[in-house]
Amino acid sequence: MSEMRTPLSRVHGLGSAKSGSGHFIAQRMTALALVPLAIFLLASLVAVTGADWQTAHDYVANPLSAILLLLFIGVGIVHMRLGMQVVIEDYVHGHGLKILALVANSFFAVLVGLTCIYAVLKIGFGS
């Protein structure tokens, strides 16, 4: 097969990083898991609408809802990080800025993910 890459891209060392399929599969697998988990989140939000702190706390502290919430957060964070990575790669063209945005994306995902997980665990294990 003839060379498909331009000489410029060859010099830059750009092109396939050999990880595109893994990205695609991870995006779709997390998406699949998120369908029922998102429906659970919506049902949960309806269930605690107008509820006082104790009722909402009891709802989240219930092991079943805590585990499903943790799954939504964990899987959702991975899915959104992959999605934002594609958005950044599509629209941010400056090399330095792109790297910065990709790093910020990962940091944001871990920060929000850990914050949510810590809160759910505290509610679940707390008195």
Binding site: H57, L69, T115, A119, I123
Partner: peptide, 9 residues
Amino acid sequence: LAAWLIALA
């Protein structure tokens, strides 16, 4: 979502 959970905690 994080703010809601933190407030609840």
